[in-house]
Every structure is written in structure tokens, then in C-alpha cells.
């Protein structure tokens, strides 16, 4: 992937290769925190932060520690440890800066650790052989794409509260149908540029 401009990767990971709506990673917090626009914005920003930092750190861990020592097969454990520590750090920072945001995010902040989108981005970065700059922008772009999707979802769900929905579809049911429709809409971007 040497030739691809980092900025192309950045925009592609927001729209054409949206981590959530195209790869369906990070669905659990996407479905459970998208009830209010305010909290989803908070979680979205946290995901952007964690994704950017972890893709940079995991790049360093992979190419400067794991690869030279021939222990690439340990990348899952190594990546998860890095992600967990970054989330811990983020939790301390948020608690210090904004108590309000800390309470609003509640349990979902530590749950970012097991958000598969985060690990997914680190693994994609390795599989697609991105350079350092490409990796960081890929992480940031994926985070922004995830935030965009959850914000759109929260906006739609706020309006859904006033609609008549068949009882069996209320809650997660209709949320899954809507994310499917959103995913189809995002396919419309895929003609612009392809990254694989």
C-alpha cells in the first residue's frame, strides 16, 4: 500500500470503508449507546481518540518489537494490552476533565476496550501493510467514520421514539434494520475510491 496517499485512506475509511457500516465492527456499543445524540458524541470522540492513539502505538509495537523478534502470532494479545491501557488512561483523563461526560459514558467507556472496531483497525493496518502515517490516518478516519455512523443512528433513533413501531420490533430490532438500511446507503459512496 506504499503508493496510496494517506489522505485517500483517511477519507476512504470514513465513507467507503466505514468500519461500522461496511465491516460491521463495533456493533454492540453502536446499538446500546445510540439512544441520545449527546452521549453518542461523547463516546464517538472517545473512540476517535483511542483509535488514533492505538493504531500509532500498535504500529510501533508490531514493526519494532513483534516483527523483529518473529513473534507476530502474539499480535492479538499485544494489541489488546495496548488498547486496554490506552482506555484506562483515557478514563483517568476524562474523569479529570469532565465529570459530566464521565458519568454520561458510564460503563461504555471501559467497554471501548472490547470494542472490536479498535482491534479490527489494528489488525487491518497489519494485513494491508500500511506505513506509519497511513496507519495513523486510517485509525483517525475509522474513528471519525464510527462517530459519524453512531451520530446518524442517534439522530434517527431520537425521531423513532415518536413513531408507531410494531411491538416486536421495538428497541434492538428496529435498530438493526435501520443500521442495515444505513449500510446500504453507505454502499453509494463505494464508487468514489476503493481501499482493501
Amino acid at each position: 500500500m506504499e503508493g496510496l496517499s494517506p489522505w485517500v485512506i483517511f477519507f476512504a475509511s470514513i465513507f467507503t470503508g466505514n468500519i461500522l457500516l461496511v465491516y460491521f465492527l463495533g456493533m454492540c456499543s453502536f446499538l446500546s449507546v445510540s439512544k441520545q445524540v449527546k452521549t453518542s458524541l461523547g463516546l464517538g470522540l472517545a473512540v476517535v481518540f483511542v483509535l488514533t492513539i492505538t493504531s500509532a502505538l500498535n504500529y510501533i509495537v508490531y514493526y519494532y518489537i513483534l516483527e523483529p523478534l518473529n513473534i507476530e502470532y502474539l499480535r492479538y494479545i499485544a494489541f489488546i494490552i495496548v488498547i486496554a491501557s490506552v482506555v484506562q488512561l483515557l478514563e483517568m483523563i476524562i474523569e479529570r476533565i469532565s465529570e459530566t461526560l464521565y458519568i454520561n459514558l458510564g460503563i461504555f467507556l471501559p467497554l471501548i476496550t472490547v470494542n472490536c472496531a479498535i482491534l479490527g483497525v489494528s489488525l487491518f493496518m497489519v494485513i494491508r501493510k500500511y506505513t506509519f502515517i497511513q496507519s495513523v490516518l486510517f485509525g483517525a478516519g475509522s474513528g471519525i467514520g464510527w462517530m459519524l455512523a453512531i451520530l446518524a443512528m442517534a439522530g434517527i433513533r431520537a425521531r423513532l421514539n415518536e413513531q408507531k413501531i410494531p411491538p416486536a420490533l421495538r428497541g434492538p430490532g428496529i435498530a438493526l434494520i435501520i443500521s442495515g438500511i444505513m449500510a446500504m446507503a453507505f454502499i453509494g459512496f463505494s464508487g468514489i475510491v476503493q481501499i482493501q
Binding site: I81, L89, M92, R96
Partner: peptide
């Protein structure tokens, strides 16, 4: 050793952060 090293390093960073942030 390398995994222990990575974990240890991150743990040290967290302990320092906790000392100053929390």
C-alpha cells in the same frame, strides 16, 4: 519476555499517570 516487557512498560505508564492524573 517481550510480552512481559510490553505489559510492564504500559503498567509503568499507567502507574505514573494514576499518580498525576487520578
Amino acid at each position: 519476555l517481550s510480552m512481559a516487557g510490553i505489559s510492564g512498560l504500559l503498567a509503568i505508564i499507567l502507574v505514573i499517570a494514576e499518580r498525576y492524573l487520578a
